[in-house]
């Protein structure tokens, strides 16, 4: 009998996780306050670019390729926007300092390294464009 309840419980947990992730996935969130950029991230910044999209990935990340394709395409079509990818599989301290717990997580950083916003999961193209608009000189995408 315990097994039946455990089975029902597991199905309920899956439904809850699915619902939570559906609302959170790809949503643009506010910048995390008090983040000091670790050295490997600072090395990727370009002071002459308005916005750098830093994609934090791991070797085991199933949706990182899809995210990379989307962000690369966006950066390619947009003036002042760059896309860089950082694999933190073997840099857990970097992930911890950035406050990143899931991959992919994308951070938008300005030329000085200040975080503008972040997105967990595959970003939603339209809401990302809307959120980046105030930070870029021209049209996006």
């Amino acid at each position: 009998m315990t097994g039946v309840w455990a089975l029902l419980g597991a199905v309920a947990v899956v439904a809850v996780i699915g619902a939570v992730l559906r609302t959170r996935n790809g949503r643009v969130r506010a910048a995390r306050p008090g983040v000091r950029l670790p050295a490997p991230v600072r090395a990727l910044l370009d002071p002459n670019t308005h916005v750098t999209l830093l994609q934090v990935s791991t070797t085991f990340c199933a949706t990182c390729r899809q995210t990379k394709a989307l962000l690369e395409e966006l950066a390619h079509r947009t003036e002042g926007l760059r896309h860089v990818e950082l694999d933190v599989t073997d840099l857990p301290d970097v992930a911890a300092e950035l406050g990143v717990l899931r991959a992919p997580t994308t951070l938008a950083l300005d030329g000085t390294g200040a975080e503008l916003l972040r997105v967990g999961g595959v970003p939603k193209r339209d809401s990302l464009i809307a959120a980046l608009r105030p930070h870029l000189p021209g049209p996006i995408g």
Binding site: A6, L7, G9, A10, V11, V13, V14, I17, G18, L21, T58, F60, C61, A62, T63, V88, T89, P92, A95, A96, V100, L101, R102, A103, G121
Partner: peptide, 30 residues
Amino acid sequence: VATSAALVAALLNAALGLCLGCELYLLLRR
């Protein structure tokens, strides 16, 4: 408990195409 946890992971993968362990690798590692 352990079997239920494995079942949650398998069902997430089957029904939603979601690999929870892959996304949360960083969380697991920490």
